[in-house]
């Protein structure tokens, strides 16, 4: 944890912006460059900055859920998104579209959660080991 007033003040403004931006990137990935992986990284970096400024415990309080649970939930969402083809009888992971919206976005949200969970689990492990 870095004891810096500038960083703390900056992070207070940056974190919500980065979260919004990460969701924008996730959404943009539906048809254009972007997607769950990059979006997830941006989100994770936001929380990692928070952990640097306010400490790991404060970050966990803000995050609410355990990063590893987020990882598992994302993985499960990704797997389940492929099962939407059951009624149509098509192979696993075949995209189903309703208007402009398709099941790949569900998979992408799964990827987003896996990346957020995975990166933050690593950040937590490293910072706790370093005694920060």
């Amino acid at each position: 944890m870095m004891d810096s007033l500038i960083l703390r003040t900056g992070v207070r403004i940056l974190l919500p912006l980065m979260l919004l931006f990460s969701i924008f990137i996730l959404w943009r990935g539906h048809h254009e460059p972007g997607g769950g992986f990059v979006g997830g990284l941006i989100c994770a970096v936001g929380f990692a900055l928070h952990a640097l400024a306010f400490g790991i415990d404060a970050m966990r309080r803000v995050l609410k859920a355990d990063p590893r649970t987020i990882l598992g939930a994302g993985l499960l969402l990704g797997i389940l998104s492929g099962f939407i083809t059951v009624p149509t009888g098509e192979p696993y992971m075949t995209a189903q579209w309703v208007g402009g919206l398709g099941t790949p976005v569900l998979f992408d949200i799964g990827v987003y959660l896996v990346v957020v969970g995975g990166v933050l689990a690593m950040v937590c492990a490293l910072m706790e080991e370093g005694g920060a």
Binding site: T69, L71, A73, L76
Partner: peptide
């Protein structure tokens, strides 16, 4: 085709559920 994908899907789902029950 579900049967053919099962060798991947079954352990993957198991892993995801195990991660949800991490504690």
């Amino acid at each position: 085709h579900w049967l053919t994908a099962a060798p991947i899907l079954v352990p993957l789902t198991t892993a995801a559920l195990c991660m949800l029950a991490w504690n």
